[in-house]
Design a protein around this nucleic acid. Sequence first.
DNA 1: CATGAATGAGAGTTCATTCAT
DNA 2: GATGAATGAACTCTCATTCAT
Lengths: 194, 194, 194, 194
Amino acid sequence: MGEKSVQKKKYIVETARKVFVEKGFKRVTMKDIVEACDISRGGLYLYFENTSQIFAEVLKLESEETDDVFSNSITEDATAVDILLLFLKEQKKEILRKKDTLTQAIYEYYFDNNNLSRKDNVLRRQFESAVKVIEKLIEIGVENGEFVCEDCAGTARNIMYVLEGLKIVSQTSGLSPDAVDRELMYILQQIGTE
Amino acid sequence: MGEKSVQKKKYIVETARKVFVEKGFKRVTMKDIVEACDISRGGLYLYFENTSQIFAEVLKLESEETDDVFSNSITEDATAVDILLLFLKEQKKEILRKKDTLTQAIYEYYFDNNNLSRKDNVLRRQFESAVKVIEKLIEIGVENGEFVCEDCAGTARNIMYVLEGLKIVSQTSGLSPDAVDRELMYILQQIGTE
Amino acid sequence: MGEKSVQKKKYIVETARKVFVEKGFKRVTMKDIVEACDISRGGLYLYFENTSQIFAEVLKLESEETDDVFSNSITEDATAVDILLLFLKEQKKEILRKKDTLTQAIYEYYFDNNNLSRKDNVLRRQFESAVKVIEKLIEIGVENGEFVCEDCAGTARNIMYVLEGLKIVSQTSGLSPDAVDRELMYILQQIGTE
Amino acid sequence: MGEKSVQKKKYIVETARKVFVEKGFKRVTMKDIVEACDISRGGLYLYFENTSQIFAEVLKLESEETDDVFSNSITEDATAVDILLLFLKEQKKEILRKKDTLTQAIYEYYFDNNNLSRKDNVLRRQFESAVKVIEKLIEIGVENGEFVCEDCAGTARNIMYVLEGLKIVSQTSGLSPDAVDRELMYILQQIGTE
DNA sequence: CATGAATGAGAGTTCATTCAT
DNA sequence: GATGAATGAACTCTCATTCAT
C-alpha cells in the first residue's frame, strides 16, 4: 500500500470517526461510511473488511492523540493540584458531552468485542495508564503537602472508577453539570483538597 | 385486553428477557423473539410494535422484582454493616456475571433511548433509590458507631458511581474477582470498616 | 407448511426447472428464479436456501416422473427388441436435444456436489436402475432367441456407458443424428440384431 | 508482441491451468488468476479479455502436449495389443483422477462455448484423432492376428464413447477402480483379447 | 507495457411489517 | 385475536473492468 493509500486510509478513518460519534457503533453500516466518505462501495472494502476493523483503527488514532494530550498537561510546570484539577475539568467536559463523543460507540464496540486481549483493548490500556498518572500525581501532591492520602494507588483507581461510573450514567440516564461537580468535589475532599 | 391477553403478554416479556440476556438489546430482532416464544410473527405485533417496547416492559418487570429483593434485605434484623456487606456481595456477583445478565442490554437500550424522561428511566430510578437506601444504611451505621462518615449522602452516591464504574469496566474490558474485591475494600475503608 | 405452501413449492420447482433447462445450473441465481416465478426476493428464501436445494428438488421430481415413464414402456406387451429399440430411440432424442434439456444442468450440479452419497445421487441411481432394466431386457431377448449375448450384465453396462458418452459428447462437441444412429447400430449389432 | 510478452503469456496460461485444475472452469474468476500469477489486475487484461480466452489457450497448449505423448507411444516398437493396453491404462488413470485433472473444467468450458466450430473445438479434435489412432491400432492388430474385429472404425468409436461415458460418470457419480477395470475388460473381450 | 486504486453493477441474505384468512 | 405467507427495503460483499500514473 503506497503513500497515497495511507492518506486515503487515514481520511476514511477520520471520516468514519464522525459517523461513529453521531450514531454509535452498532447502528453504523459500511454503507454509512461509504456515503460519508463519498467513495464507492467496493472502494471501502479495499481498505477495511467491516465496521469493527474501521473502529479499531479509529481507536488506535484516538489513543495516540489522547496520549499526546495527556503528556502535554504533565510536562507543563504546575503543582499536582493544578494538574489534577485540569484533568478532572477535562473529564467533566467529556462526561457531559453526550453527543459529539465517541464514548457510546466505544462501549458498544467492546460489548461486541469483549474477548480482546489486554493488549488490544484500548479502553483497558487507557484506564490503566490514567490510573498510573493519577497515582503519580497524588504521590507528588502528598510529598508537597498538597494532598493527604494513605493508599495512593487505591485512591487513583477509585477516582477512575467514579469517572467511569459518571460517564456511563451520563450516557444512559443523563447528568447535570452540578451533579458531576458534586462528585468531583467529593473526590477532592477525600484527598484533602478544598 | 382480557385476562388471557395479559397472561400472554407476560409470557412474551419473560421469554424475551432470556433473549435479551443472551444477545444484548441491539442484536435482538422481532424474529428472535417470535422464535423464542414460538408464536406467530403477526401475533407478536398484536402486543408490541418493536423490540424497544418489549424491552421497556422487561425493565418494568425487572424493577418490580428488584425492589422487592431490596426491601427484603432491609426488613431483616441485622446491623448496618451486615446489610451493606450483603448488598456489596450481591453487587459483586452482578458485576462479575458478564453473561447471564441484563446489564449489557440495559446499557444498549438506554444508548438508543437516552431521551427518556426521569420518570421513565428505570436505570436512573434504581440508581437513585439505591443511593437513598445506602445513605440510610450509613446513617444508621454512624449512629451505631459502626461507620465514620461526615457526608453520608455524598458517600452513598460515591459508592454507587464506583459500582457503576466497575460494572461497565467489567462488561467492556473484563475484571477479575480480586480486582472487584480490592475496590469494595477501598470503599469500606473509606467509611471506617475493616 | 400447509397445503398451499406445498402447491407453491411445487410451482417454484417447476418454474425453476425451466430456468435450469435454459441456463444450466451454475449460471442460475436466486434472482433468476425469483424473476421467473414472479415472486418476491424474500419469498423464495421462505422455501429454499439456495439454488442447489432447488435443483435437488427438481431432480427428485424428475426421477419420479422418469421412473414412471420407464415402467410404462415395460408393462406393455411387446418383444424385448421392440422395447429396447423404443428405449434407444428415446435416448437418441434426449442425446440430440442440446437445448431444452436438463442434462447440462445435471452435470454441472454434480460437478459441484459430487460428494453426495450413493443414495442421494439421483444420477447414479438412474444409471444403475437403467442398467438393471436393460440387462433384464437382454436376458428375455436371449431366451426368445432375439439376442445373442454371453455377458448380459456387462453388455447392459456397456450400452449405458456408450449412451453417457454420446450424451456428453453431444453437449460439449455437438453430434449429428447420423452419428448417434451409427453408434446405436453398432450396439445392436453387438447383440446380434439387424 | 515481443519475446518477453510471449514468455509472460505462456507463464499466465501455465499458472492459470493449475487454477482451472483446482476449481473447474466456471468458478474461476479473473481475480483468481491475477492472484495465482501474482501480477496486476490491469496486467492480465493486456493479454486476455476473460477466463474463456485464457482457457482456450490452456486447451491449445494441452492438445499440443497430448499429441506429443500420443505419437511417442506409437513410434516405439511394440505390438498393437501392448500399445492399446498402455493407452487404456493411461485412460484409466485419467478417469479415476477426479481431482488434479482438467476434465471437469473442459466440460464446463464447452457447456458455455458449445457453439464453437469443429476446428476450434479441441475436445472434438482430440476425440476424432484418438478414434483414428485406435482404429489404426486395431487394424494392425487384426493383421497380426492379435484382434478379431469386423468393423474396426465402429469399434474404435465405440471404445472412445465408453471412455467418455466412464469419464463423466466418474466425475459426477464417482467410480471405483474395479468398476473401470470391468468396463475395460469388456471392451477387450469384444475384440478378442484376454 | 504494467500497476493497482477505484468504480459500480449485481448476487446473496435477512427482517420489519402487512394482510388475507 | 391469531396465523404465517408474502413483500420489499436495506445491507453485505465480490468482481469485471477501467484508467490515471
